[in-house]
């Protein structure tokens, strides 16, 4: 029987997006063998966890500690380790925080670790996961034996409807040494969503001609009403037109949004590696021979300075209805 612990993320006293998705993945693993899912929430105490039962948690383990105001890897690892013997698998979201946490937990409890997992299954003694490698140019299937730590990629599992009790249980944070002191989070300049989290990503490339033209993309993102982020190709990040946090591609972020709109991006292989798993790809480019059109579901050949404002107006109109 595979009991699963899902370690959820908290920021500013609230659960992060992706908590329900993570519970869905945990549920899938647990249900395969009639196991249970516990959600672990490390916080200073006042987090609303009411939705977690509906999202699939049998129990919600709340661990309160004054050091949990910010992300506290050392305290979280100690807390997970104190309960880990009860679980076949420990899952985290493959976010920046989850990917920081997973290998620490794995090393502490002497378990193997798999990152960026897009699919997870239990078969006998083995947990089988699929994960993109070589920047998405190949998919690796890996078998992990014994207790296992898995970071599940955002977007891999939709939230499930199968609700559970979500019974609240308080657990004690064991003593730990706070080796790393996270002092806070400085909000990035854009104020927009992060490309790795957004449902819609609109990326710009050299075709924009000038960094000031990114405003066109920001306007289009704004038309989506807070669910879109603006990304950039490596060429324009290297040229200093956009922050590297916005870079989509092999040396930047890998994104899997529902809608990816590539504007003035030719589609170098390194860029494609970062966005090819998007559900729908739209390309807008002046050059009809641009490689981006080979991966795009829908393409418009034309001047982005005409097409993008027209698209912005059309999206606004649809959203207004």
């Amino acid at each position: 029987m595979a009991n699963v612990l899902a370690v959820l993320e908290v920021r500013n006293g609230a659960l992060r997006k992706g908590s329900a998705e993570l519970l869905a993945a945990a549920r899938r693993l647990a249900d395969a063998s009639g196991g249970t899912v516990d959600a672990l929430v490390c916080s200073t105490g006042a987090v609303n966890t009411d939705t977690l039962g509906a999202a699939g948690a049998d129990r919600v383990l709340s661990a309160s500690h004054a050091d949990f105001a910010n992300y506290c890897p050392d305290g979280t690892v100690a807390t997970v380790a104190s309960v880990s013997a009860q679980y076949r698998a420990i899952v985290v979201s493959a976010s920046a925080t989850g990917k920081d946490l997973a290998p620490r937990i794995a090393a502490r409890i002497n378990a193997p670790c798999a990152m960026d997992v897009t699919s997870v299954d239990l078969s006998g003694d083995t947990i089988r996961v699929v994960r993109p490698v070589y920047a998405g140019k190949a998919l690796q299937t890996v078998d992990l034996r014994g207790s296992t730590v898995i970071a599940v990629r955002p977007g891999a599992y939709a939230g499930l409807g199968a609700g559970k009790a979500g019974a609240n249980v308080s657990i004690t944070v064991p003593p730990f040494t706070k080796r790393l002191d996270v002092t806070g989070i400085r909000t990035a300049n854009t104020g927009l969503l992060d490309v790795a989290e957004a449902r819609v990503v609109i990326s710009g490339g050299r075709g924009l001609g000038d960094p000031k033209h990114f405003v066109l993309l920001e306007e289009l993102a704004a038309a989506f009403g807070g669910e879109a982020a603006v990304g950039a190709s490596r060429a324009v990040v290297d040229a200093g037109w956009a922050e590297h946090g916005a870079q989509v591609g092999q040396t930047g972020k890998t994104v899997a949004p529902e809608l990816y709109i590539a504007v003035g991006i030719s589609g170098a292989i390194q860029h494609l590696a970062g966005m090819r798993t998007a559900k729908v790809i739209v390309a807008i480019n002046r050059d009809k021979d641009a490689p981006i059109f080979k991966v795009a579901d829908y393409g418009i050949v034309g001047d982005l300075f005409e097409v993008v404002p027209a698209l912005t107006a059309a999206v606004k109109q649809v959203k207004a209805h």
Binding site: R16, N70, Y71, S95, A96, T97, L180, D181, V182, T183, G184, I185, R186, T187, A188, L193, D194, A196, E197, G245
Partner: peptide, 9 residues
């Protein structure tokens, strides 16, 4: 970098 910000430590 974390989603939506820069973590300092």
């Amino acid at each position: 970098e974390v989603e939506g910000g820069v973590e300092q430590a």
